[in-house]
């Protein structure tokens, strides 16, 4: 297959591109650096023309709603239109588990951006697979880098079921290869639910959910990484605590995928740390 990966220099994009290539696909590694701007559409049509599948692994580094919504909504619209025009079978969008649940994005502007992205794909003129992954272990590093103040780290309290990014990439690539240009695999009732067709959605659309084997909170994740490594992101706070400042719903477990058929990766945090 000929697969275009947008955001190919990013954390998940590069892992997905590597794996797709290793599996014998032709991969177009696309990014701002390669001259493709998904938000403005610059370079996009030419970059996607003739690809079988388009993977949207784009990202923007912001926590504020306004730039996040603008970026994700515009990018999704532009990508879907360019993918359709270029003859792709479908778009695969990498999203985050739980962010579209009621109220989940109230306290966190970035998640509003991801909601806007999913909404845009629901209305897209081309079949879409949305892969909603739970948080990745590396989130602990980002949190410590952002929330440390001297010896104190007050993390946003989030209950999650994290998994290794590499494993998330394995599952994402598995889905891309299994479904190819757009033949949806057999649907087991309740499993990997399609976007509801009764709402006028295209039944060729599909949602895949990923999570890790254990539930934990932000502080528990960070403490276990600190316990194994001594420092996280170059810091070793002696006081790691958490507070529900990104909203109570995130602290309450809305980010933990609970649907039947969710893919549960089996690599535990301890195994990942020991590797």
């Amino acid at each position: 297959m000929d697969i275009a990966v947008l955001g190919a220099t990013g954390t998940i994009g590069s892992l997905v591109a590597d794996r797709l290539e290793a599996a014998g696909n032709d991969v177009r590694r696309l990014s701002r650096a390669s001259g493709v701007n998904t938000e403005t559409g610059e370079g996009l049509e030419a970059a996607l023309d003739g690809a079988d599948v388009v993977v949207d692994a784009t990202n923007i580094a912001t926590i504020r709603a306004t730039p996040a919504v603008r970026f994700f909504a515009r990018s999704a619209n532009n990508i879907a239109a360019a993918a359709k025009k270029g003859g792709a079978g479908r778009v695969v969008c990498i999203s985050i588990a739980g962010v579209t649940k009621p109220g989940a994005a109230l306290g966190f502007g970035y998640y509003r951006g991801k909601c806007a992205q999913e909404r845009a794909y629901r209305a897209a003129p081309i079949p879409t697979t949305i892969i909603r992954s739970a948080q990745w272990f590396e989130l602990g590093e980002q949190m410590v880098a952002q929330a440390s103040l001297g010896p104190v780290a007050v993390l946003p309290q989030m209950r999650m079921a994290p998994l290794a990014t590499e494993r998330a990439a394995d599952h994402i690539v598995g889905e891309i290869i299994a479904t190819g240009r757009g033949v949806v695999p057999e649907i087991v009732p309740g499993q990997n639910a399609r976007l509801a067709p009764e709402d006028g959605e295209d039944p060729r659309n599909r949602i895949v959910r990923l999570r890790g084997p254990e539930e934990m909170t932000s502080a528990q994740l960070v403490r276990r990484i600190l316990g194994a490594r001594g420092s996280v992101a170059g810091r070793s706070p002696s006081l790691v605590t958490e507070y529900p400042y990104l909203g109570r719903r995130l602290a309450g477990g809305v980010l933990v995928p609970s649907s039947e058929g969710t893919i549960v990766d089996d690599l535990t945090l301890d195994q990942w740390l020991a590797a």
């Binding site: 010896p151 934990m216 502080a219 528990q220 403490r223 276990r224 600190l226 316990g227 194994a228 070793s236 706070p237 002696s238 006081l239 790691v240 605590t241």
Partner: peptide, 9 residues
């Protein structure tokens, strides 16, 4: 407050 870099979940 007691220091809590303790990895104990």
């Amino acid at each position: 407050v007691q220091a809590q870099a303790d990895p104990d979940a």
